[in-house]
Design a protein around this nucleic acid. Structure first.
Length: 428
RNA sequence: GGAGAGGUGGCUGAGUGGUCGAUAGCACUUCAUUGCUAAUGAAGCGUUCGGGUCAAACUGAACCGCAGGUUCGAAUCCUGUCCUCUCCGCCA
């Protein structure tokens, strides 16, 4: 959520930003309602003050008659105050609704453009795109060859979009998790495993809209709980309502959770295999920072993502996301797109990680603040998130890039300690 | 899941209808004082929204888990709800 005062004071900048993002937002309407709300707020406050004054007089009223008179006056003042307050609350609710739909301001250097066509490639990973002297197989075929994936059983048990990992895929899964978590702990991140469900208010705070028509979120019937779509939700929600001491920041967490996504509306662009699934496991980075720290930490998260995928020996490119392709809370977002030889005709880039600086947009909604010792008042922290490893897509990249002509899959060196072998060979 | 107890300021802990935003202690900050690494004394010490100011000072409102209700007036009474603790049951 954007700061209301900022919207009122900079309507042109906000509108310009909405336009760059391709979002229509009722900025003028919000400003008009806010002016009305201020009037009602002052009115209610003034009436309340008078009512309080009257109440205090009742205690020391000279006679029973005077007391009754004052009581009546008090009653009437409260009624007027309640009416003003009720009018105020309605306005407040309307404003909040509008305010929630205004996206975060975008970083001045973020490429301006309507969609992912305008995304700007800013760098490439160390691993070159593999030049196969054979026709590479996609991960579904490789999975079949090595008995790694069972989509049919997944569909039987939970429906299309669910799957079982088997055999070495399970070891790869755990290896990817261990590798990522260990590396991040070395870098000062606190490891956390999180709930896989969260309250609706937490989802809202992070910027997800469960129970809407186009929601990506599974909700649990007859409860206020939703399956999380990412640990970003739980890690951000972890400190909802908290006030940090400024010395505690930046606080860096690495969370491990399952992620559940309905992929509503994705039917048209349904992808093969593990690329777009309803459930996967993800190692997620999350950070709370002082405002002046967030830009640098965002670069750090991006570099960590590069380091991880370089270590996995997977070719990738880094993309600076265009304004029109940013999620509402993001101020700036980088995606890592891994080369996936089995995707499309002759291979395609496919998103494997993404890191966003959300500045104070989520913190305002979640009410996460910090306090500087010796200074009055509190300020909102900045929040950042970044994928370390999304297991399902990482498995695609590893399988497809490390295959050999005979179908053998070379296990990246950094994963070998946990997979327990140098390659996944074809069963005889 | 059953039974009981409780949720008050950074912490401990008073407060059962009217100067309670809230006693007291600890912690913290500032000042004073004492020749010894600390003691003593005084004052200050929450958040949010508004007015005010260059900025302060100052000032209005709200906040005692949360949401409602009763009342002229609620931390205090009533209802619901969430959470915590203890005991029992169940279980990984």
């Amino acid at each position: 959520m954007l700061d209301r005062k900022y919207i009122v004071e900079h309507p042109d900048l906000v509108k310009q930003n909405c336009a760059a993002r391709g979002v229509t937002a009722a900025v003028d309407q919000l400003i008009a309602l806010e002016a009305e709300r201020r009037v009602k707020s002052n009115e209610a406050q003034e009436l309340n003050r008078l009512a309080n004054e009257t109440s205090k007089l009742i205690g020391k009223a000279a006679s029973a008659e005077a007391r009754e008179e004052l009581k009546e006056k008090g009653r009437s003042l409260r009624e007027q105050k309640d009416a003003a307050q009720a009018a105020h609350d309605v306005l407040e609710q309307q404003i909040l609704e509008l305010q929630t739909h205004i996206p975060n301001m975008a970083h001045p250097d973020a490429p301006v453009g309507a969609d992912d066509e305008a995304n700007l490639q800013i760098s490439l990973g160390k691993t070159p795109i593999p030049q196969f002297d054979f026709t590479p197989q996609d991960h579904v075929e490789l999975g079949r060859l090595h008995d790694l994936l069972d989509f049919e059983a997944g569909a039987t048990v939970a429906g299309s979009g669910f799957y079982f990992l088997k055999n070495d895929a399970v070891l790869l899964d755990l290896a990817l998790q261990m590798f990522a978590v260990q590396l991040l702990v070395k870098k000062g991140f606190t490891p956390v495993t999180t709930p896989d469900v969260a309250h609706t208010t937490i989802l809202h705070g992070i910027g997800f809209m469960p129970r809407g028509p186009e929601t990506q979120i599974y909700s649990i019937e007859n409860t206020d709980l939703n399956l999380v779509a990412t640990a970003e939700i739980t890690l951000g929600g972890m400190y909802s309502g908290h006030v940090f001491d400024s010395e505690q920041l930046p606080l860096k967490l690495v969370g491990l959770s399952h992620c559940f996504r309905t992929e509503a509306g994705a039917a048209g662009r349904a992808s093969k295999g593990l690329y777009r699934v309803h459930q996967f496991t993800k190692v997620e980075m999350f950070a709370f920072t002082l405002p002046e720290q967030s830009d640098a930490l965002h670069e750090e998260l991006r570099e960590i993502e590069c380091e991880l995928f370089d270590a996995l020996e997977v070719p990738f490119r880094v993309v600076d996301t265009a304004t029109g392709d940013l999620g509402g809370p993001a101020y700036r977002k980088y995606d890592l797109e891994a080369w996936m030889p089995g995707r499309g005709e002759g291979g395609q880039w496919g998103e494997v990680t993404s890191t966003s600086n959300c500045t104070d947009y989520q913190a305002r909604r979640l009410n996460i603040r910090y306090k500087v010792k010796g200074e009055k008042g509190t300020h909102f922290v900045h929040t950042l998130n970044g994928t370390a490893v999304a297991i399902s897509r990482a498995i695609i990249a590893v399988l497809e890039n490390h295959q050999r002509a005979d179908g053998t899959i070379q296990v990246p060196k950094v994963l070998q300690p946990w997979v327990g072998k140098e390659s996944i060979a074809v069963a005889q």
